[in-house]
């Protein structure tokens, strides 16, 4: 009785091997996709290009009302080349923070005294966007 039932049941149960076969290519491509170098950070994978950082930093510095935009270059020193004082320097760093959505701690901000240092800092900062 039990054996007959077992045979009857087993006759109707099929393990869907076909379905598994169909599933495989999809999972392979999924693995391929995962195999790419994807970062796990939440703030977007793409890091800013250096040219873009340079361009945006210079645009911010040039928009500072007290200086002549034509004098600003990527290696300009705020105080020596552009004739600004330390207060102006703080204002420029604040404007850069706003532009790149950063919060630069005081110790780091005090070191930013030229366009080149600012570009370097922002380019190397993981959160700059």
């Amino acid at each position: 009785m039990a054996t007959a039932l077992r045979i009857a049941v087993l006759r109707h149960i099929r393990i869907p091997v076909q379905a598994l076969e169909g599933f495989r290519p999809a999972s392979a491509s999924w693995n391929l996709f995962r195999g790419q170098n994807r970062s796990l950070s939440s703030h977007g994978d793409e890091h800013l290009e250096r040219e873009e950082v340079v361009e945006r930093v210079l645009a911010v510095v040039k928009s500072f009302p007290k200086l002549d935009p034509s004098k600003v270059a990527a290696d300009s020193h705020f105080q020596k080349d552009l004739g600004l004082d330390s207060l102006d320097g703080v204002e420029i760093v604040m404007a850069l923070e706003e532009e790149f959505k950063l919060e630069i701690p005081d110790k780091e901000a005090d070191k930013i005294d030229s366009c080149s240092v600012a570009i370097e800092y922002i380019f190397n900062h993981p959160m700059s966007g």
Binding site: S86, L87, V90, E91, M94, E98, D106, A109, D110
Partner: peptide, 18 residues
């Protein structure tokens, strides 16, 4: 010190922007 003054200046600007 100069650093204290600049830090106050920065804090005031940061607070102002909020």
């Amino acid at each position: 010190s100069r650093a204290e003054l600049l830090s106050l200046f920065r804090s005031l600007l940061r607070t102002a922007s909020k």
